[in-house]
Design a protein around this nucleic acid. Structure first.
Length: 341
DNA sequence: CCAGATGCGGCATTACATCA
DNA sequence: ATGATGTAATGCCGCATCTG
């Protein structure tokens, strides 16, 4: 697998904790988001529509012209694998027929058409039919001239459908070659869903069944989402830790205050505020915020300030989410804020 | 307008290949 | 040999769209 885990296309920026928060370099950034702005693993979207806007641009340029290709870290390395692959050239079938014309005439080795009783088929069976697995036969026959370099050590197990894979009903797992994975990965970076034409073209290019391409994209989306979920969980975990810490601190403070309350000197030591300020919003009165807060008692005074300071811009009220909130959370809603094109 | 068919993606799960 | 891991593949479901 040429694609590393870190190359899943997700992005994350996690702020570190309060002691580091003021340092500009304290942003912990993980690149876990796909470059496509229309993509959000946290938000379901109509992939039919989402994929339709690149139909005219498909196949994605593998020569480095596309914007998305430039931004991916592994792009250069990946693209180098595609030398000699003419994405616009459809491999010619031995029969010279177009794939669409093949659809009706050739049966898929894995197709269950012949076993159907005429009642409603399950989705997989429908896909086998609808996704033109009949093209498989075509692709099976073009192994000799497909353009992706195949590791000859395991050619039959690298996604190229060979005759021995057919018909026995066994669930042979085909390992995609590095080049095939790279091409799929690059396509995924362009868009994470495929329309039928794109799927067919990609399948034909790679010598795979359309169903295999479809499954690869499905699994790839699942991996991306899983990665995003892990990121979200990490974020929530940090929030929980912050809240726990704040709760512990407040509990301790309450204990201190209760202990002081028992002492009559507590009230004697409290100096009345010289000036009172009133919040224009809630009209609460509080002491001036310039009082230095070092002791617990001082914090008692200043807490009133904090309680009213939330109405003033720049108020430093406690925000348990702030120190753990990754920038990713903003991007998670990009799909809601940006109209889909 | 409506019911059924179709096509697709999401999701959970299985099964297999690979590796330490 | 074996368990862990990664991932291709399967089955089912929901939703949107098409069609008669």
């Amino acid at each position: 697998m040429v694609v590393e885990k870190e190359d899943l296309g997700l992005s994350l920026s996690l702020r570190r904790f309060p002691e580091e928060i003021n340092r500009p370099s304290s942003l912990l950034q993980l690149n876990l988001m796909p470059p496509s702005s229309s993509f959000s693993t946290s938000l379901p979207f109509n992939a039919h529509k989402a994929s339709s806007n690149w139909i005219h641009n498909f196949p994605p340029s593998l020569g480095g012209e596309s914007e998305a290709s430039r931004v991916v870290a592994a792009g250069a390395e990946t693209r180098s694998l595609f030398k000699g692959i003419d994405v616009n050239q459809i491999p010619s079938s031995p029969t010279g027929d177009c794939c669409e014309e093949e659809v009706g005439g050739v049966s898929s080795p894995n197709s269950t058409i012949s076993s159907l009783s005429g009642t409603k088929r399950n989705s997989s069976e429908r896909r086998d039919i609808n996704n033109n697995d009949q093209l498989v036969a075509l692709n099976n026959n073009i192994n000799g001239d497909h353009e992706v370099e195949i590791d000859d050590r395991t050619t039959s197990s690298h996604g190229i459908i060979s005759d021995e894979d057919d018909g026995d009903g066994s669930r042979k797992k085909l390992r995609l070659s590095k080049d095939q994975s790279a091409v799929l990965e690059d396509s995924f970076k362009e868009h994470n869903t495929l329309n039928p034409k794109q799927k067919l073209a990609l399948a034909k290019r790679l010598g795979l069944r359309p169903r295999q391409v479809e499954v690869w994209f499905q699994n790839r989306r699942a991996r991306t989402k899983l990665k995003q979920t892990e990121v979200d969980c990490e974020f929530l975990k940090r929030c929980c830790e912050n809240l726990t810490e704040e709760n512990r601190r407040l509990q301790k403070e309450v204990q201190e205050l209760r202990a002081l309350k028992l002492s009559p000197q507590f009230y004697m030591q409290m100096t009345p505020p010289t000036t009172l300020t009133m919040c224009p919003s809630c009209e609460r009165v509080g002491p001036p915020s310039s009082i230095p807060s070092t002791t617990t008692i001082d914090r008692v005074r200043s807490r009133q300030v904090t309680a009213t300071a939330h109405h003033r811009p720049g108020a430093a009220a406690f925000d348990p989410w702030a120190s753990a909130r990754p920038i990713i959370t903003h991007r998670m809603f990009d799909g809601l804020l940006q109209p889909r094109s």
